[in-house]
């Protein structure tokens, strides 16, 4: 089976010594990959690298077999993303924004737009200007935009940030449904470890710019109490947290 995402030696260092080093990641169709790590460990840097927002110092990224340095359009055709904070042209309404997004993908009609708004719970606010939205609402809109084209791979950076409890539940159900019914793959970076435990089949742990562990959630859970315990153990091994934690 061909990987849908493959990074080789992916490296990007910033002047303040933040960044990531030597990331080897392979994702296969149907994977829901959780990216775990402390704040500032390099999760967002990795996601920006694989979506071409920043250029690597070294290494390559291929999405669906297409190098994003050379065949960006081809690679991104089947990718939906929300990266870093949910920022929008805030003079638009949610519906106007999704209409702009829809133009990029063939065959998205108004019904799909309405459906996407409905799924994330923004149906009522769809005609309001985005500038009047709360953080959680913006987060929902970003999610709607990412999944609306029904991409084969959705890259979600901290998708539950600012979401209320109902929102979080909605998110979990949505990801489960899309992955089970449509066979969509996901990369989700989060520090909400319980979310990831329920959603992901694979996780990678990022500490100080390095992908220190990668594994199947089911296997990890056999030898560990919980994903949380495993994560803390790994951080302790990496010297990231004190023994008392």
């Amino acid at each position: 089976m061909k990987p849908i995402l493959e990074t080789v030696q992916l490296t990007k260092m910033y002047r303040n010594d933040r960044g990531i080093r030597d990331f080897h990641v392979q994702l296969y169709p149907g994977d829901v990959y959780g990216l775990l790590g402390p704040n500032g460990a390099g999760k967002t840097t990795f996601l920006k690298l694989i979506t071409g927002l920043i250029r690597p110092d070294k290494g390559t990224v291929a999405l669906f077999g297409a190098s994003i340095a050379e065949q960006f359009e081809q690679g991104m055709r089947h990718v939906g993303c929300m990266i870093e904070s949910a920022d929008f042209h805030d003079f638009l309404t949610a519906r106007q924004y999704l209409q702009l997004v829809a133009r990029y993908y063939p065959g998205i009609g108004n019904s799909r737009i309405e459906e996407a708004l409905d799924v994330v719970g923004l149906a009522k606010a769809k005609s309001d200007k985005i500038k009047h939205y709360s953080t959680g609402m913006k987060q929902k809109l970003a999610l709607a935009a990412a999944i609306m084209p029904e991409p084969k791979l959705a890259i979600l950076d901290e998708p539950t940030n600012g979401l209320d409890i109902e929102g979080t539940v909605m998110f979990r159900k949505l990801i489960k449904r899309l992955s089970e019914q449509k066979g969509m793959s996901f990369i989700i970076s989060s520090h909400m470890i319980h979310e990831l435990e329920q959603l992901c089949n694979r996780v990678g742990i990022v500490v100080r710019g390095r992908l220190i562990k990668e594994g199947c959630v089911s296997e990890l859970l056999q030898s560990n109490q919980s994903l949380e315990q495993y994560y803390i153990d790994q951080l302790r091994l990496a010297g990231e947290v004190s023994e008392s934690a």
């Binding site: 960006f72 359009e73 991104m76 055709r77 990718v79 920022d87 929008f88 990029y104």
Partner: peptide, 17 residues
Amino acid sequence: ASRTLKLALLRPNSRFQ
């Protein structure tokens, strides 16, 4: 400034486009 450039860059469009 409003960090909205990524919205266009994350579409299946090259930088040139």
